[in-house]
Write a protein that binds this DNA or RNA. Structure first.
Lengths: 230, 230
DNA sequence: GGCTGAAAACCGGCAAGATTGTTTGTTATT
DNA sequence: AATAACAAACAATCTTGCCGGTTTTCAGCC
């Protein structure tokens, strides 16, 4: 991974997990925290936000609830840390996929879409989606989730274009393409169990196709913000 | 509303709410059940699936928990009824929007997209989305939700084309357009608080534009299901 | 280098509150 | 008289946060 990607990742890195612990206690603490956060991600992905209890997380992490509450005093503290962790891991996974893409053949537009799609199938994004939906109806969660989610979005926007420099001359089209890709694939993910497998593939190919046309200039973009446009 | 729409609605109509009650008790029972279901929809939309308790629903409905449990013995019974009710109301609202659309000017393609979008902003769809997401991590809920959701999807597919008969000659394109529209707008809805207002409008216009191009035949559709296509 | 008090990591138990389902009772309808 | 609509109280369970106690590590001092 090149140094700029590392810098981008560092920008999102959770604060209490960064310091390369000098002392034994610091290293142990960080290790336990990561174990807890991984367990929390698993619980979110498997049982959803509403059914994720501190008991369950502690069990999956293999420590006692008391020990966990020593590291994260309240559930809210833990969730806040999980948000940071999830956002960080999501970007890490995506950059990893992009790097693999750059090394590979990179066949037309479909490869990018499929990398994107696969990044949505990870347990990290599963946890992220649970938090995003829960934040829609939980003001306290929204307060800590939304700023971090917006920052992730900005970081993603700034980073993906580095992997696809052919968009550099089309900033508006690029911004639209990113939102478009996110919206369509996340919407597909939600309806995954409802729609048929065949629909999935056709839809993903269609999205890739339209994005390729945007890049080629074969689609006229909508007028930018006309504040009264309905 | 024409008779075919009524037939379509009847196909989704919740069983225990249909009978035009002859007796006083039947009418009273149905009325109370509808009050409860409306309250449940409100709770789902406002507090999310995880925080929707029977206590909260009963309070919002203005009756005692005991009375509510007389009509719906368990929470699962209630949720099952809410699913039916939500699916029904969602279709009812959509048909209502489509009918208004048919009477109006129906300017190009954007009107259809905006009708679709507005149907996603209702509390009924808010409740539906909560159930859909919760069903992803709750096997018991999924068991009762998924069959109903799939049936709704089929009904929607069969009904929308009646409002837009110009697609009749393009069945594959039509099926793709429906999934596409659902996926993109639902994905937009999830990210509503994360993205800026300007992005919303541009994205919706873009979706409308691409769908218009599909109709006009200006987009080559992806090959249908090639079972090994990545 | 070894000792000692402080602090950290960790565990188990406890109480307060919330949630669900049952049960018992009252009023109104059939 | 039987049944339905409704209400209120109850028990059982679950979840959270807090507290006391144990073991291990750290920092200062002889």
């Amino acid at each position: 991974m090149d140094e700029i990607s590392i810098r981008v990742l560092a920008q999102l890195e959770p604060e209490n997990l960064v310091s390369e612990g000098q002392s034994w206690q610091q290293r142990k603490s960080i290790q336990t925290r990561v174990t807890i956060l991984d367990a929390a991600v698993d619980c979110l992905q498997t049982h959803g936000y509403g059914r994720t209890t501190t008991q369950l997380i502690a069990e999956k992490a293999g420590i006692s609830r008391g020990a966990m509450l020593h590291h994260y005093a309240t559930k809210q503290d833990l969730i806040a840390a999980v948000i940071d962790y999830t956002v960080y891991k999501r970007m890490e996974l995506f950059l990893h996929g992009v790097r693999a893409l750059k090394d590979s053949d990179r066949i037309a537009e479909m490869a990018g879409i499929e990398i994107f799609w696969e990044s949505l199938l990870t347990r990290e994004f599963g946890a992220y989606l649970e938090l995003a939906v829960a934040a829609r109806t939980d003001p306290e969660l929204a307060e800590i989730f939304l700023p971090k989610a917006r920052r992730y979005d900005q970081t993603e926007l700034a980073e993906v274009i580095r992997a696809f420099p052919e968009w550099a001359n089309l900033p508006e089209a690029y911004a639209l393409a990113m939102d478009y890709c996110n919206a369509a694939l996340q919407g597909l993910l939600i309806n995954r169990e409802i729609w048929s497998e065949g629909s999935h593939r056709v839809l993903r190919r269609f999205v890739g196709q339209t994005i390729a046309m945007m890049l080629a200039g074969d689609l006229t973009l909508p007028q930018a913000v006309s504040s009264k446009a309905g």
